[in-house]
């Protein structure tokens, strides 16, 4: 496997490389065999140690790994009859977000997902998963169709934020996100959101209002990126690891805060190390969560969704 190794994984992968070198030897000596045996044990312990207590910022690094599975990977693996549709019917087609219809376990569904690239060329095309207003408007258009045809909506969140640019502001980035928050609150079909990588700020929430919030184990979701927070509060983006701790933005934190509903486990080392297992975990979670809404009327869904957001917040009174 030639996946990029993250800094905190280096000690582990140095040993793995050493082990592979030894194994590749044509005529291993007795000493080599002993070494192999020792290394195997060492690697196993180290692997557990490395991934058992990941810091929030280490998790963020995994969430940002170039090889991490993207929305389309899940769409192509877990759904049938995928038809992608394009454009907001007003200005353009935003390639930072994919939208379309497909079948999940035989049932027609709608899918919206932020799409990052897996290399620089693709990332430029996808604008690194940073949406423009037309992207939010495309998503809303497709979600309205979902309501019209009574299809549940699956949302995949993976964005470093809404794009901060001149055109985005001119075309009403704030309005586009706000409009989606309002309209998604009253769509009479089940909406199941899954954070598969990064969920930064209003850019993520702009397609993220729903009935369930699932998070992959190493994903994060927050009001601001740790770098943004560090540069404002600590006046230096290099304090991002500290900001990541303070912001309590990882999946377990959000589960505890009552904002996320469920954590989808990832294989050791992250989703990119074993996509099949990850995809299977996601499939099971989606299937189980979709069943929660069977037979619920649109009105009940909307009322329960309202209550779900209504109770989020911490304050004292009196």
């Amino acid at each position: 496997m030639s996946l990029a190794v993250l800094d905190f994984e280096k000690p582990l992968y140095e040993r793995i490389d050493a082990l592979e070198a030894l194994r590749a030897k044509r005529r291993p000596t007795q000493a080599d065999r002993a070494k192999i045996h020792a290394l195997e044990g060492e690697i196993e312990t180290l692997r557990q140690e490395t991934y058992a207590n990941l810091s929030p910022f280490q998790r963020i690094k995994i969430a940002r790994h170039m090889a991490r599975p993207r929305s389309l990977d899940y769409v192509e693996t877990l759904f049938e009859d995928w038809i992608e549709v394009h454009g907001d019917r007003g200005f353009a087609d935003d390639k930072a977000v994919i939208a379309g219809y497909a079948r999940f376990e035989g049932r027609p569904v709608t899918i919206i997902g932020q799409q990052k690239g897996k290399d620089t060329r693709e990332n430029l095309e996808r604008n690194f998963g940073m949406m423009h207003p037309e992207g939010y408007r495309k998503a809303l258009r497709i979600m309205r169709n979902a309501a019209k045809f009574d299809m549940p909506i699956f949302i995949f969140i993976d964005t470093p934020g809404a794009y901060p640019g001149i055109g985005a502001e001119e075309r009403g980035q704030a309005e586009a996100i706000a409009r989606n928050l309002l309209e998604m609150a009253r769509l009479p079909v089940p909406i199941i959101c899954t954070v598969i990588g990064e969920g930064a700020s209003g850019g993520a929430l702009g397609i993220g209002v729903g009935d369930r919030l699932l998070m992959l184990e190493n994903s994060w979701y927050c009001v601001i990126s740790p770098e943004g927070c560090a540069s404002i509060l600590f006046r230096d983006a290099s304090h991002a690891p500290r900001a990541a701790e303070a912001l309590k933005l990882s999946a377990p934190d959000l589960l505890e805060q009552g904002i996320a509903d469920e954590i989808i486990p990832e294989p050791l080392g992250g989703a990119h190390r074993d996509f099949e297992t990850t995809a299977e975990n996601v499939r099971k979670a989606l299937s189980r969560n979709l069943r929660l809404f069977e037979g619920k009327s649109g009105e009940t869904l909307v009322n329960e969704r309202y209550e779900r957001y209504r109770r989020i917040g911490v304050f004292e009174e009196g």
Partner: peptide, 17 residues
């Protein structure tokens, strides 16, 4: 920022209202 994701969710809450 000091209220992190709780703050973010207030956007959804107010818009739903």
């Amino acid at each position: 920022m000091q209220e992190s994701t709780y703050s973010l969710m207030q956007m959804a809450k107010t818009s739903a209202a």
